[in-house]
Design a protein around this nucleic acid. Sequence first.
DNA 1: TTGTACGCGTTATCAT
DNA 2: ATGATAACGCGTACAA
Lengths: 370, 370
Amino acid sequence: MRKTRTPPTDEGVAAARLAHCKAALVRENRRVTSYDVALVAGVSQSAVSRCFKPGASVSPSMHARVMAAATGLDYIPNAAARSLITRRSNMVAVVLCHVSSLYHPEALAELSRQLARRGKRVLLFTVQHEADVEQVLGDIWEYQVDGAIIAAPLSNEQVQEFERRRLPLVVFNRNVRDRTVSSVLCDQYETGRLLATRLAGAGHRQFGIVAGPEGSALASERRAGACDRLQELGLPAPVVVPGQFDYASGGSGLREIIGTLGRVPDAVLCGNDVMALGCLDTARHALRIDVPRAMSVVAFDAVEPASWLSCDVTTLRQPMHNMALAAADLLTSMIESQGSHLPEKRVFAPQLVEGSTARLAPIRDTWLAA
Amino acid sequence: MRKTRTPPTDEGVAAARLAHCKAALVRENRRVTSYDVALVAGVSQSAVSRCFKPGASVSPSMHARVMAAATGLDYIPNAAARSLITRRSNMVAVVLCHVSSLYHPEALAELSRQLARRGKRVLLFTVQHEADVEQVLGDIWEYQVDGAIIAAPLSNEQVQEFERRRLPLVVFNRNVRDRTVSSVLCDQYETGRLLATRLAGAGHRQFGIVAGPEGSALASERRAGACDRLQELGLPAPVVVPGQFDYASGGSGLREIIGTLGRVPDAVLCGNDVMALGCLDTARHALRIDVPRAMSVVAFDAVEPASWLSCDVTTLRQPMHNMALAAADLLTSMIESQGSHLPEKRVFAPQLVEGSTARLAPIRDTWLAA
DNA sequence: TTGTACGCGTTATCAT
DNA sequence: ATGATAACGCGTACAA
């Protein structure tokens, strides 16, 4: 232990500078900047910038000094300032309507996850109705996002504005007419066909359909698919009754079908799971129909929650995980390629969830096997 | 109609400048800036800035000229550049874990809506498990958000880091121990007490509880509330059996309770709706118990989807809409007040959904009436 | 490898 | 009411 005053070490100098700098920051009420870090580390500001850029050419000693100073100051690079110069915000706009976020909560979570692993964050825009997209477009331009994933129908003009601004766009689970635009979707028409095929293959001949209310484009595509396929197979036309997408509609729909038909149908297709549950309960407990032996009940489209609230309904589900992954991939490559990426549609087949409420023929459709 | 060459009008000049500017933008591959607008409108750049600032002092003619030029150029102010100088990004970080986004999808949608009407957008961060929050904190600092709403438990150090960075924080639906931090939550203990009170008041004496798996802090608080209240009322201790939060657990749990008790209990409390549905189906269809006359079945906590997949279970629901509104309000005022806002807890009472699976005493609890 | 100097697009301050 | 000028915090040519 020497008693003499030790000469100022590098650490000592840095520590003094750090304290001085911290005091100044508080006094002037400023944020910590790369310039402050440079001051404390005794290097230039651009050196600090390089140290935070992965793959930059920096000597180990420089890196160590800068990182020490940065840690001491709690320095984090400012993403806003960076995006100003790089023209990349690393943010992606995701537009959802209120309802679809309720019915398909896993879609957003999965989009967020997939985008995060590609270094992008989700800037969320929600609208009450799908038609309200126009209201958020202005905000989207303003926030300088690198691209957008939109789960709502877009008008021709709206798509055009994305092109004009050269903003990568992926439309999620909606059809866009008369325009070539990148999109990810699930083939609803095929969903209907598939179900009809599998049920017909198992010997069902007379079908009943509890449809949803008019206005749902996706739902009516599914119904058309089923009806077309039944006709192709030479089976009798199904009895179609309307429903309100609620539990009660399922039971009353079934009774109505039986009334019209004069007998119990071989199979009932319900527009969603809620109606399928209602139909199922009425059939089993009120009408004492042996499901699935005397009658099959299937839902056209399952929301994810149906699997945990499950009563084991046979149903078709949109492969949201794959769709989210595809959307993230598609958008990312559009962003990376700076617009040279041509519009691309990725269409997914629905996923059959074989519950215990229907008899199905074994798999023959090659698409399903894929 | 004069045949002579007309002198250049203001509109003519502006149109020419617009065309010239547009060409330059494409040639130099630049973005449209306020400077371009100024050039076309023939005014200064700061004038353009003022025209886009609500409540600034600008003459009508100036406003008109600038807006015309801006529209012609598709100009939108750049939020990143603005936030650099104003130190306001108008973005709020929302951190969710994957699971809660599935069970309470309406929470995020409502948060987004409420924040939007206050001029803030949601920058979404999702984590697989609640313990992974640490991973996204770095990103939160980087993106210069104005505040954060976090639906995950935070450690003492993590809360401290928010304070150090003076970043407004609201913890959503989680308890934070040993720290005064603003939070919005639903009183789980009271949820349990309330249910016990209302059922006891209707004459139920012997209770059974199908609990969830260990590890859910919220669920065990609810159970404790129910048990404490039953003891206070001098009723026999409930039979508690474990469950896995799935449909099957409800039925097997009920059978186990009956086995232990040697008779059918007066009321069964299930840890969530899925188990309540399972319990209900087993009771009604397999054991032929008259619900609710011979036995009441209630769920402790309902997720929103239970209402559409509803089998009309009597249950308690967390008032997510109110909670989201409160969180948005709380965070906004913390942001506006620049940190002078003291930490504040907002605790909500659970909301009783009176289905048809239980007999309940009339309302006496003053809190419920509120 | 490191430092200098400039620009990204805006708002804010201060004259006029 | 309007215009000149200085920040905001960073990335990146370019020179050394």
